[in-house]
């Protein structure tokens, strides 16, 4: 009697198996396939831009990277004579990014040190939020602010720098025109990269092993002594990685630079002088009125920018993730 009752309650016996159920097979297959979407997107971007821009690479050869001239003229016979070179734009992009790093990285490292080792807990929490907030500001806000508010100040600063340091070759100018210079664009970009460099550096500094910090203090180090002997060596690789992430951002920034830079297709080493080059901004500037051929050349320029930023970011991410791992 009692045994039949138990039999009724027990569920049907199932064979023990390690074979996944159909729902799991489907689930895992979908995830496996979808996880490659990022590869697909990256490959499609590189592939399409290279494919469309191939004509410009072929026609201009290596000069596409080195020549400074960019022109496309429709002649009397209706034929389009064009010569596309990005030399001025590439050097301009690198110059502006260098200025941005030169100003932005020291400020970011100091801010990160201040937040980690100096600021009281409450102030620190508030300021960390402000850093995140800065990162979420739209780039066009930096552009319009740079154009309206910062530009007059930067022109004044450029004049001051020129007055006292004008004897240094790259700080001289051929004629006194200081508006819309690479210097101004560099300052705007330096403000834009501060959040990312600061937050990466701060994360690394915060991981400094407490026992090493205490050991330094126990040996009689001052706060600065501790930072120099413990925190900076520990965080150096993370700071380098963060700076490279900032470089990646600085290379690809478009709208903010476009708003403040006078784009001219001539290589300009005088950073205070009123014109410069920038790949991303140049694409925006030329695209509206470009002919079919020129559009393809602009897509080729986009490909160059894509490859540059991708390489910088890949190296940067590797450096950062190594630094973070070694900290654990």
């Amino acid at each position: 009697m009692s045994s039949t009752l138990i039999e009724r309650v027990l569920p049907e016996k199932r064979a023990l198996t390690t074979k996944p159920r159909p729902s799991d097979v489907a689930f895992r297959t979908v995830l496996n396939v979808m996880s490659y979407s990022s590869l697909l997107i990256l490959a499609a971007i590189g592939g399409f831009l290279a494919f469309r821009g191939f004509g410009a690479f072929k026609e201009n050869g290596f000069g596409f990277i080195t020549h400074a001239e960019w022109s496309s003229i429709v002649g009397d016979n209706g034929k389009e004579v064009s010569s596309f070179g990005m030399g001025a734009m590439i050097t301009g992009t690198l110059i502006i990014a260098t200025i941005a790093l030169f100003i932005g990285v020291p400020l970011s490292v100091l801010t990160a040190l201040f937040l980690t080792f100096y600021a009281p807990e409450r102030l620190k929490r508030a300021l960390v939020t402000v850093v995140d907030l800065m990162a979420s500001f739209p780039s066009i806000l930096y552009g319009i602010w740079g154009f309206i508010v910062l530009a007059p100040m930067a022109t004044y600063w450029a004049k001051l720098v020129y007055k006292y340091l004008g004897w240094i070759p790259f700080l001289s100018v051929p004629s006194p025109a200081f508006d819309r210079s690479p210097f101004l664009a560099g300052i705007v970009l330096s403000i834009m990269i501060i959040p990312i460099v600061t937050s990466v550096s701060r994360e690394i500094f915060a991981q400094t092993p407490l026992e090493r910090i205490q050991a330094a203090y126990a040996l009689g180090a001052t706060r600065w002594g501790m930072i120099r002997a413990v925190a900076l060596p520990f965080g150096a690789s993370g700071v380098v990685g963060g700076a490279m992430l900032g470089l990646g951002r600085a290379l690809g920034e478009t709208v903010a630079v476009y708003s403040v830079l006078n784009i001219v297709f001539k290589i300009n080493w005088h950073i205070l002088y009123g014109y410069g080059g920038n790949i991303a901004s140049m694409i925006v500037q030329k695209f509206g009125e470009a002919s079919f051929t020129e559009k393809k050349a602009l897509l080729a320029a986009g490909f160059v920018l894509f490859v540059m930023t991708l390489l910088v970011n890949m190296v940067a991410n590797t450096v950062v993730s190594r630094a973070v791992k070694s900290g654990k």
């Binding site: 990022s38 997107i41 990256l42 499609a44 971007i45 399409f48 831009l49 469309r52 780039s139 992430l245 990646g248 951002r249 290379l251 690809g252 920034e253 478009t254 991303a280 694409i283 925006v284 695209f287 602009l298 897509l299 986009g302 920018l305 894509f306 930023t309 991708l310 910088v312 970011n313 890949m314 940067a316 991410n317 993730s321």
Partner: peptide, 18 residues
């Protein structure tokens, strides 16, 4: 991570070119 570094202008011209 590499994708997070794509400049926004590149995303725009990619859709345009494709």
């Amino acid at each position: 991570q590499a994708m997070s570094g794509i400049p926004s202008v590149v995303a725009g011209i990619f859709i345009y070119s494709a």
